[in-house]
Design a protein around this nucleic acid. Sequence first.
RNA 1: GGGCCAUUAGCUCAGCUGGUUAGAGCGCAUGCUUGAUAAGCAUGAGGUCCCAAGUUCGAACCUUGGAUGGCCCA
Length: 950
Amino acid sequence: MSETAERDYRDTLRLPKTAFPMKAELPKREPARVAWWRDERTYERRLERNRANAPWILHDGPPYANGELHMGHFLNMVLKDMFVKIALLDGKWAEFVPGWDMHGLPIELETLKHLGIKDFHAIDPLELREKCKERALYWLDRQRDTRVRMGTFGRYERPYRTIDPSFEATIVETLADLAEKQQIYKGLRSTLWCVHDETALAEAEIEYEQKVSPSIYVRFPFSDAQREKLYAVLRQAQHDTERATQSSPSVTLSDPSVTLSLSKGLSFLIWTTTPWTLPANVAIALRADATYGLYEIDGEGLVLATALAESALGDRFADAKLLATTTGEALDGLAARHPFLDRDSAIVLADYVDLETGTGAVHTAPGHGADDFETGMKYDLPILNPVNASGHFTDEAGPYAGQFIFKANKQIVEDLRASGMLWRAHEYEHSYPHCWRCHNPVIFRATAQWFIAMDQNRLRARAIEAAESVAYDPEWGETRLKQMLENHPEWCISRQRTWGTPIPALVCAGCGESVLDPQVARKAAKRFAEVGASVWWSDPVETYLPDGFACPTCGKQAFDKEKNIVDIWFESGVTHFAVLGHDGLPWPSDLVLEGGDQYRGWFRSSIVTAVAVKNAAPYKRVVKNGWVNDEHGRPMSKSKGNGIDAKDAMEKWGADVLRLWAASVEFVDDVRFGPNVVEQVGRVYRNVRNRIRFMLSNLDDLGAADVVAREALQPLDALACSVVDAFVADVKALYDRYDIHGAYLRIVEFEGTMSSLYFDALKDPLYSRAENDARRRSAQSALLYALKRFLTAAAPVLSFTAEEAWQEIPTALRGDETSVFDSSFAAESIDRKALSADLALWEELRSLRAQVAGGANVRDFEAKVRIEAGAALFKRLAHLGDNLREALVASQCELVESSALEADAAVLDIVSAHGEKCRRCWKFRTLGSDAEHPSICAECASVVRGQASA
RNA sequence: GGGCCAUUAGCUCAGCUGGUUAGAGCGCAUGCUUGAUAAGCAUGAGGUCCCAAGUUCGAACCUUGGAUGGCCCA
């Protein structure tokens, strides 16, 4: 070998070159990209460009402005962003207005805690509201930063906020609309009440502590008439059993001697630990599917659930004789007598009746319990409220009027004992709700509240109808939402707190009636729109009185302002009115996307307000995302220590890897998240990144003038472009079906096929050909096309990486598409038929390549491949020319037609290539044609000579 | 306790209206490459499709019951 033969030709090759780093360092780099998007106004500019096109609006369900965002928020917010970007790249006017839910008790409580105040009555409402506002804004800022850091696009400089004067005005306007349609009324509701502080409490202000209460079993006797009805039911049940089992019961109810044996009366037996609620009793609730028995004990008849008879009857269970049984359902509609007041107690059914404690017959006082209240509403029972604010009985409580309820307990038990209505009594220690402030036991007490009447004007029915016009993903969302509407109790929208939007109701100074007048409300809305709702606390009432306004009940013209605020579910329920339907944003929205808990929450509250006011659904499609659990499928929570903040996760792994994770899981279902899951998706990310890098690194020397037109591409490159087109079309179709996960799978698959077949084939032409060689320029042009189309398709998911790569494309090749978000999915219309032929050929090449790569002992360029192909396949392969050899990564390729084979069949013969390995291009060739370069092939020699002369 | 949902390789998931030996990516093992190199390519090992019963010529897929987990309620 001569000295020249030893020469290393590496520096004569066109090896890949790019500034796009292999190592992503996402946590470090992403913040700069966020700032770049902001400075470039990337989103705004694209919106402006799309302005003339069809709008597509995803309406944001507002996160609550309290606490840091967690991975559940991340998943939801990033998914929303993906859909917004998909619409944007599709040319739609996709204005996304992010919003925040900023009023409400959690913020009020947190603020009070910070101020060191336990009783909110002890602070001036205006001052407290100011402090709450500061707090809510603090959280909004933090959450907004985190949200922007995720790489999400939206109108962040002007979000909607439920504390904005305009928003507060919308809330009050909506109240006016509802009042006008007589959809709102004031009624009683059972609320948690502290008799010591004389105030209503929220669920969050309750602490459970142990308490000793009297545990009593009480008789509710049957009247003569009701007793006959009971017998009739029991006889029917007995009759049915006889027929079903073909056996006679040992005791026959028809036998008069049996019923006569109950000489000492007949009663329902109930159990309670709050004797003081008995004056408000109006019903006994049973469980529909439970078995109830009539027991005889020493001549007395008692009815209770058989499953609880032993524990309820105690010592005397041994003496009890079961006479007959029936189901709770059969007893529905009967009645018993109140044990000491002159009225009936209705027998009703309720789901919550359990068979663990008591008698299975639950004392029901709608004024003194949440469940009881619901049952009361359902059965239209009177809601008695014989207890005043300080916990003393009113005259309604008959003999106990004036007594403090907890003291009256003892008296009531003694009276029951004396009247013979007490079965037995003992002490009972249990967990009982207490006031967090004064630590006294709390009670349920009926108070006057504002309600939206769900069945007035067929509101519930119309909401259900409207829900049917909406599309759902998953489809069962429709059933779920309709179920929620169906079971929606009367919607209580008033709260006795400070941090919220006031309900502009007036109390008549004359008769004490509350009035929510549309005119008054509209005046308030106008005033709030100008200066904010806090003025309700400072304005004189006259500000809100229309001329000549008089009490509709008594005609007096003097009023006080009522001090109730609106439930925050009502506030978030009108975001669609606040945001949509003006500023060019259409009403209803095209899409809402929230966690599954919102079927009961925001999906429901939104559709109720929309139907009440506009008689239509406020959204066209409802998509639900699943819950984010930890790696073991357990719920994440801060208290358990397995909760992960979105911000921490992004600092650790980078937003883009997490965005890819969001796409890698099936978001509709519950998903798992944790270090191992991220590790896995991180490897997929690196794969994708390196393939992007390969494409970029081969475009370094491509000028705009060098780009070969699509029609002039070499066959393999044209084929690759078809594969790209098919890929983009598929991904677009998947996006359109909201199938982000499907798109993820397609992206990963596409990258694989490009890398293993196409990139490998291109290395030799790209590296060893002359810079301006036509083959090389064709390959580069196809790579450019593939890269750009790929980045566009991936941008909704991998926003940061797609943009980073886009910025590494030589400027001249990007044209006026400064950002990847200036590009579009839509290429020229695709010829589907031609495409499918191309895709088939691509798959044939994949199969041939796999046989070459995996089948023989010879490696890559050591091989000569001889292909015998049937007529049709031969024709297709022949069309590829030398590109066929490239695709197989062989040094030599011989294609022959065989009439013996099926038209599409092929037989491969892989042998050692002849010639010697070229030192430069590694292909096996006849060497030595160029005396100066004896160790390389003629083609390489020509390239090297060209370089030397240049 | 009720309603709804989920359960396919170690992990994330495909599997269209029931139809040959249930697929992919990541991981793992082995080999190649060292001109994408903290990369690339190839090959391979992994599965009583949660369990049980039923319908059917045939079930991962349909029906019923159960288990486990989740969400919303109670």
